[in-house]
């Protein structure tokens, strides 16, 4: 049987409080959804710089990242030739849904694989 020490219980209570407070404070003002980016092969830190629209993403750790995004159609891009951004695919973000895209970083330029594709084969949907 699992027994919790006083320290464990305190830690658990503090964690619950932090997550609860974060949810309350960070309650979305606009409709949001999620983008799950997986990189293959998975590396401790992905070297390829990725962008959602024009915003550069933090390096993806351990081959996976889940990002909160406003709903709509976003453009996933990577660094291209001559400093220009190379579009990889589009990601359709729906309210309270998660859209997963796997990026093969060994390809040049990197290639998108959608978990689900919409009518447009170039767009990933939830």
């Amino acid at each position: 049987m699992l027994t919790l020490t006083k320290q464990h219980r305190l830690g658990l209570a503090v964690s619950v409080l932090i997550v609860g407070a974060a949810i309350l404070v960070w309650r979305p003002a606009v409709d949001v959804g999620y983008v799950e980016i997986k990189t293959v092969p998975a590396a401790p830190v992905t070297q390829t710089a990725l962008y959602i629209d024009a915003a550069k993403l933090a390096p993806i750790k351990k081959g996976s990242a889940i990002l909160r995004q406003p709903i709509g159609t976003l453009k996933l891009q990577a660094d291209g030739a001559a400093g220009a951004l190379a579009p990889l695919c589009e990601i359709v973000v729906k309210r309270n849904r998660i859209t997963t895209v796997t990026i093969s970083v060994l390809d040049r330029p990197p290639r998108c694989q959608c978990r689900n594709s919409g009518n447009d084969a170039h767009a990933c949907v939830s």
């Binding site: 932090i18 949810i23 979305p28 959804g33």
Partner: peptide, 24 residues
């Protein structure tokens, strides 16, 4: 289902890579 999804979404929002708890 939508309510359930909203609840899970709020939790995921807090712990997502660009969420407040992860950043902390």
């Amino acid at each position: 289902i939508n309510r359930l999804r909203e609840t899970v979404s709020a939790l995921l929002g807090a712990v997502s890579d660009n969420g407040p708890v992860s950043q902390l």
